[in-house]
Each structure stands twice: as structure tokens, then as C-alpha cells.
Amino acid sequence: MPKVLVVDDAMFMRTKTSRILAEQGYEVVEASNGEEAIQKYVEEKPQVVLMDITMPVLDGIGALKGIKEKDPDARVIMVTALGQKSMVLEAIRAGARDFIVKPFQPEKLIEAVRKQCQT
């Protein structure tokens, strides 16, 4: 089963996301800030990354760029709040493949991850 890296500084969001994915049978790895995310990406080589935008140490955009530098083909889905339009635009410019808007329904999350695993 594909491996997914869930990056979020908020423990609640992170565990909730992880649980939904684990229930679908995905193997889940977690990171709580951008720097950790880059490190985990290199170590774990997940198929898909779910990346929160606002995080301490290194934010989601920085982490996305860091990961893309290591692996240009990395599949990163941004997890965003409604007010972060310009950030998401920047993320897509930087190579994010998709985005989902918080709060999301489990089906949306599952669908987005499944799509990235397929392509």
C-alpha cells in the first residue's frame, strides 16, 4: 500500500488525517513542521505528501520547495484554509499538485490522495 507523509503542526489535525488514511489502508508517516517534513521525505520516500501551510520552523511553502529540490517529481497536496489564496497559488507555482481546503470531508481527502497515487 502507498505511503503518505502527513505534515501538520496541529496534533489534532495530524492524527485525524492520519487515521482517515490509515483506515483506507495507507501507510502513514507524520511530521510536525517543515524541516522535519523534508527530513522524513528523504528517509521515508512517501508517494504522496499532505502539507499544511502555516507551521513553525519552516512553513509549508518552504518545505514544499525543499522537497521539490530533492525530488522534482514529488507529489505534494497542500492543505489550506480559505484565507490563504495567495499562498496556495505560490505553492502550485512551486509545483504542488493539488490542494484541499480545511475543514475537509474525509472523502475529499481520500479522493485527492488516491488521484496522486494513480498518476
Binding site: T80, L82, K85, V88, L89, I92, R93, R97, D98, F99, V101
Partner: peptide, 14 residues
């Protein structure tokens, strides 16, 4: 659809 402009941007990019 939320963040419609970003979605459109994503489509155009992809």
C-alpha cells in the same frame, strides 16, 4: 467550489 481562482490556476497549470 472553495478557492475557485486557485482551482482554476491549478487546472491551467496541469
Amino acid at each position: 467550489a472553495p478557492l475557485l481562482s486557485v482551482r482554476a490556476f491549478q487546472v491551467l497549470t496541469l
